[in-house]
Write a protein that binds this DNA or RNA. Structure first.
Lengths: 244, 244
DNA sequence: CGTATCCTTGAAGGACTTCAAATGTTGTGG
DNA sequence: CCACAACATTTGAAGTCCTTCAAGGATACG
């Protein structure tokens, strides 16, 4: 058995307690491993999936496109996440899931998940907790959209992504991967590409961040955090220290 | 034992199957019934609650205020909802919960909820499902904030509230209670009170709605739904017919 | 090496905000 | 039950943040 499931172990440990027995049980989950090309959908709005998608490597995002063609990106996902875990209890998907970069994923059958939860309720609780943290990120996203001007909003997104990546050991010093085009960033924060571009220049000119080639480097964490009014409580990390 | 729990039975039935045995189990939940004055907080941002709040009668909302004083309303809640159910698995609250109107609520101890879930896993699944639908509403909220201009956004909120209220039998013909001030509406949709006011006048002038004295009347459902590009899938109602 | 995608820049226009004040409504205590 | 205070709605006017349109450069990939 390959090591694809390790990412999810690391992720689960970042948000709660996972006993050795729990870990063993999770490791027995059968995965259908698939490579996704950049931009490929892993699940479609309106479909009724019978499996959920564990992100092993790369970035994914969830999005919704309206009849008028406008796209809103709802969340970004990092290795170990199960972006469509909610489909376990929600028959039909109300949005789509796509590969932001080329990535490898493992599909898990809902039946297997249900069996795991029945056998190990503590894992079930942790998965429930995961979906609740998901909702917490949505709430923070709403706050940003409603109350933060462009620079603050984008800064907040950077803070969140950096902290989440650090929690799963995916940062190096003050840098992390963030392979998003400015169009994707714009669709995420609800701004035009043009304005995203100008706002990024502003953040760079203030010596808060570097961003190029899909790599984000935080140059001044205290000031960035302050600008964004970033409070990591909503991430509900098991070890809050990684959020400072 | 009084009938305060009935609202939650009706709510649970609106989103899924609830067997007679499940219902009996739910009815045994001890409630600490409290009357809340308009504007009173039921739970505070940053606190670590040991009970969750079942809304029996009235309206509540969840909100977050930023250090700079700006307030974002995250959700509105109707009778039968448990707005802070997530605190069951998330120690510290990342936002506040308040009474929009004078209302009566019943606090349920987390221990009692956990015991109920252990005894009746199907109720646990339904509660999990409820929190997932909650997240679905947040996603729809994000889409509105990012992609819909003011009239469409407000129209969408009206569509959602009307359908949700109908699902729990709280509508009369094309009318429902919606006791929100324009300031609250603005904090919900991320617009200034002034602009909310002008947008409402626009919706009224188009003969789409009436709204006064806390009562919303839908004058032209097809056109309102169309304007908002409202698709009720995300509410995951047990009987989708109530959403037409 | 060529083509598609992404980033950047300029300029004009529009949606929404802020400020300020008038009007209308609600609830409470005298 | 009226009077008054507090709160809610409405209106006007000026300004700002962000959008759209359009086009020129840079970068990446087959």
């Amino acid at each position: 058995v390959a090591d694809e499931i390790s990412a999810s172990i690391r992720k689960l440990r970042s948000i709660g307690e996972l006993s050795a027995a729990d870990e063993d049980a999770v490791r027995t989950l059968p995965l259908r491993v698939v490579e996704l090309a950049r931009g490929a959908d892993a699940a479609h709005d309106g479909s009724k999936p019978t499996e959920s998608c564990l992100l092993v490597e790369g970035f994914m995002h969830r999005y919704k496109v309206l009849p008028n063609g406008r796209r809103q990106i709802l969340a970004f996902h990092t290795p170990g996440d199960i972006p469509d875990l909610q489909s376990l209890h929600l028959r039909t998907l109300d949005h789509s899931l796509a590969a932001t970069t080329r990535c490898t994923v493992g599909f898990i059958r809902h039946d297997d998940l249900r069996a795991l939860i029945r056998k190990r309720p503590s894992v079930g609780d942790l998965l429930w907790r995961d979906t609740l943290i998901d909702a917490g990120m949505f709430r923070a996203w709403i706050v940003s959209m409603g109350q933060r001007p462009a620079p603050e909003h984008i800064a907040h997104l950077f803070c969140e992504m950096f902290v989440r990546l650090r929690a799963i050991g995916q940062t190096v010093d003050n840098a992390c991967n963030l392979p998003l085009t400015q169009t994707e960033l714009g669709d995420a924060v609800g701004l035009s590409t043009v304005h995203v571009n100008r706002t990024l220049q502003e953040l760079r000119a203030s010596n808060l961040i570097e961003l190029q080639g899909g790599v984000l480097r935080i140059l001044d964490w205290p000031r960035l955090k302050d600008l964004a009014q970033f409070d990591p409580t909503y991430l509900h990390l098991h070890d809050p220290k990684v959020a400072d």
